[in-house]
Each structure stands twice: as structure tokens, then as C-alpha cells.
């Protein structure tokens, strides 16, 4: 799922790709050979180590993934993964440069070597896997519903067949996505996540259709105001992506991620997961390496 205001740009990009076929996919086909040759000779890992910092492409306006805190600092789970990567590479979590990019620039910026890696709530899809190499996944996104705390509804089943009003972020496919689960819903589309939350808070809608991570974040900010539906659907993975064809680089990134998610560098990952996603991840138990399942 694309979240946040980035979705708007993504919609616009759809227009480009459908109308003109000059989107990300086309860019792959027309890549100059120069950059690629340099890659095979040296490898991205050496380039990054020589440079002394890793360049990470991410977004800037979607909590809990990448957003500005009160001080204007870029924080969030995606951003934390960037710091974890820097720590693995250099032993210094600050040797990372974040390039803020719109969601529709995620693949093109990899292909043109503007970034070493994209860590930006990227849903793993087979289509995308044709263009990029995905790292190990670090989150399972899903769709769910938000309710106000005192709502009589608590689950998807509660709102089916009642002709409820549903707020959702404006998107080409959103109407179908909602009606797939709530066929009799009246869908009200808004321009920002903020306004979908307001629609709920002002009782204009019975529920707001949201990504699981967004719903979790919103609820965590004010547990007295909102609650999340019991079920999720459309579950899928978020992973970072690199330019395809550099096995050494992706292996190394994966080792760093694995060490953070299930190994000796677990602590910062665990704390960030709790802080941004509200999930107290247990360290994978000793014995059989279950993290590979």
C-alpha cells in the first residue's frame, strides 16, 4: 500500500504511465550501460564504504514510517532502518544521508543511482520484484478499520450490511478496495490522512479505512479517542529495495537487517518497533532459527 500524501503523486504517476508509458518501468529498459558496468567492477558495498556514508531514499510525511518530529528531525521506522544500516556498515548510526523522495520516485531513484537503497514503506509485489531486488521484509502491512472509542462497532463484520459511511484517502482504487469488504458502504474520499481522521472524529463517517500501521499510530497518539478493528486483511510485506544485480550488496544489507531483527543488534530495532509501531517484538528463541520461517 502507498500511504500518506505520497499517494496523490502516485496517482499522478499512473496517469503518466498509462497515458504515455514513460514511468518507472520504461526507465528500466532505457538505462545507460555505464553505471551498471561500474557496479560489477567495484560493487555497491565498496562504493558505500569508500564514501563513508550510505545514501538512503525515503519519504518525509507519513508517520510512523518517515516523518518530522517536533524539532523537524526526520524520524520513523523506515528512518530507523537507515540508521541500523549505517551502524552495520560503519559502526556509526549517523553515517547515513536521507534523500527525501516521493513514493513514485522509489524505483527510478534506485535505477539512476541517486540512492544506494530505498527504505520507504515499500510493498513487496511480484511486479516490483521484476525491477528491483528486495531485502528481507521488516514489517507486515495490512488493511483495517478505525473507529472512535465509543463506537458500537468493533470489527469488520459489525459494519457489513449496515450501509455505513467510510472515510478513505483519495485514490483511484480505493472505492473498489473498500467495497470488496463492505459492499454496501458509502465511501467518502478525502485529500489527506488528517482529514480522514477528522471525518471520523467529527462523526461524519462510521469508520475510516486505513493501513494497519497508520491505524496503529493514530490510536497510539490518543488511545482515549480511537480504536482499531479486530481483523486485518490484504496482509503483505514491506521491504527495502536495491538496484538489481549486486548480490554482495544485498547479502550484506540482509545480514545487517537480520542481525538487527533477530541477532546481536536487536536492542535498537526492538525499541524503534515499540516506539513507532507499538509492537513489543520478542527476540527469536534459541534453538531452531525460526526467523527463517
Amino acid at each position: 500500500m502507498l500511504a500518506g500524501a505520497d499517494r496523490l503523486r502516485a496517482n499522478r504517476r499512473r496517469v503518466l504511465t498509462q497515458g504515455l508509458v514513460i514511468g518507472g518501468a520504461a526507465a528500466v529498459g532505457s538505462l545507460p550501460g555505464r553505471a551498471l558496468a561500474q557496479e560489477t567492477a567495484e560493487g555497491r558495498l565498496k562504493t558505500v564504504l569508500d564514501r563513508g556514508r550510505v545514501i538512503v531514499g525515503t519519504g518525509s510525511s507519513t508517520p510512523p514510517w518517515h516523518f518530522e518530529d517536533e524539532a523537524g528531525q526526520l524520524v520513523g521506522m523506515d528512518v530507523e532502518m537507515g540508521h541500523i544500516l549505517a551502524n552495520g556498515l560503519f559502526g556509526d548510526r549517523d553515517k547515513v544521508e536521507f534523500v527525501q523522495q516521493a513514493a513514485d520516485a522509489r524505483v527510478p531513484n534506485l535505477m539512476t543511482d541517486k540512492v544506494d537503497i530505498t527504505i520507504q514503506f515499500m510493498s513487496v509485489t511480484v511486479d516490483r520484484a521484476r525491477m528491483v531486488d528486495f531485502t528481507l521484509p521488516y514489517y507486515r502491512e495490512a488493511l483495517t478499520l478505525l473507529f472512535v472509542k465509543d463506537s458500537p462497532f468493533t470489527s469488520l463484520a459489525d459494519v457489513q450490511g449496515k450501509g455505513v459511511k467510510v472515510a478513505a484517502l483519495q485514490n483511484v482504487y480505493i472505492e473498489d478496495l473498500v467495497k470488496e469488504k463492505i459492499p454496501d458502504a458509502e465511501v467518502l474520499q478525502f485529500d489527506s490522512i488528517a482529514n480522514t481522521i477528522l471525518a471520523l472524529e467529527s462523526r461524519r463517517v462510521d469508520t475510516t479505512f486505513a493501513d494497519f500501521s497508520t491505524a496503529g499510530w493514530v490510536t497510539a497518539q490518543d488511545p482515549g479517542k480511537f480504536k482499531i478493528a479486530e481483523e486485518t486483511w490484504g496482509n503483505h510485506n514491506y521491504a527495502a529495495a536495491v538496484r538489481p544485480g549486486d548480490q554482495r550488496w544485498i547479502n550484506f544489507v540482509n545480514e545487517i537487517f537480520l542481525s538487527a531483527m533477530a541477532g546481536l543488534d536487536f536492542a535498537p530495532f526492538h525499541d524503534a518497533y515499540l516506539k513507532y509501531l507499538g509492537i513489543d517484538v520478542p527476540l527469536a528463541p534459541a534453538g531452531f532459527p525460526t526467523q527463517f520461517l
Binding site: D6, A194, L198, V218, Q221, K225, F226
Partner: peptide
């Protein structure tokens, strides 16, 4: 221009609103 995601005053307010899940005061 907030409706086309330009980083203006209203967009800044919207971003904080999404982080804090409390849009109206902003």
C-alpha cells in the same frame, strides 16, 4: 496548493496533524 501536496503552511499543519492524530487545533 495543499491539495497537490506542496509544502505550504496548511501542508505543514496537516503533517503535524497526522503525526499527532489531532488535526483541529492545527
Amino acid at each position: 496548493v495543499v491539495l497537490v501536496s506542496v509544502n505550504d503552511l496548511l501542508f505543514a499543519a496537516t503533517k503535524v496533524a497526522e503525526r499527532t492524530a489531532n488535526p483541529m487545533p492545527l
